[in-house]
Amino acid sequence: MSDAQPRNPLHGLTLENIVTKLVEHYGWAELARQVDINCFKTDPSVKSSLKFLRKMPWARKQVEELYLATF
């Protein structure tokens, strides 16, 4: 069943991978400018960002859209 989502470009990527790659590419300051959420602005960390993004689908969607636009 590895073909379950052949047209989903995020298939196989974890949210942690997405956030980590975006931080490596942009850095926290630019990431906070691109996606205006406090978990990227105030004492940012991957762990705290994941906790917030898992609870807020609208924020996760913005992060995933930025990932797709960037990579």
Rank of each mutant, 00 (worst) to 15 (best):
L13N: 00
N8F: 02
R60A: 10
D3C: 14
T14V: 06
T42Y: 14
V63W: 00
P9R: 11
R54D: 07
M1A: 13
P44W: 07
Q62T: 12
W58H: 10
Q5Y: 13
Q62V: 13
L10S: 06
T14M: 03
P44I: 10
G27W: 06
A29P: 08
N38V: 07
D43W: 06
E16H: 15
R7G: 07
V35D: 04
T20M: 00
T20K: 09
T70I: 04
E24Q: 15
L53I: 02
H25Y: 14
D43G: 04
G27S: 04
K41F: 06
T42S: 12
E64K: 03
W58V: 13
F52M: 12
R60Q: 14
T42P: 03
Q62P: 09
E65T: 13
I18Q: 00
I18D: 01
W28D: 00
F52I: 15
R54L: 07
D3L: 15
E65Y: 08
T70S: 03
T20F: 05
L13K: 05
N8R: 02
P6F: 06
D36S: 15
T14P: 03
M56L: 10
V35W: 07
V35M: 06
L22K: 00
K21V: 10
P57F: 08
Q62W: 10
F52C: 12
Y26G: 03
H25D: 14
L31W: 00
A32K: 02
A59D: 09
K55C: 11
L68D: 04
L13Y: 05
S2T: 09
K51N: 12
L15P: 08
S2G: 07
P57W: 05
P44S: 09
R7V: 04
I18M: 02
V46D: 09
A59E: 08
Y67D: 08
D43I: 03
D43F: 10
W58Y: 08
Q62S: 12
Q34Y: 06
A69S: 05
K55L: 08
G27L: 04
H25G: 12
Y26A: 02
M56I: 15
S48P: 04
K61S: 13
M1Q: 11
A32T: 05
W28N: 01
E16T: 06
S2D: 07
D3E: 15
I18P: 02
L50A: 03
L53T: 01
E16L: 06
V19M: 03
L10Q: 06
G27M: 03
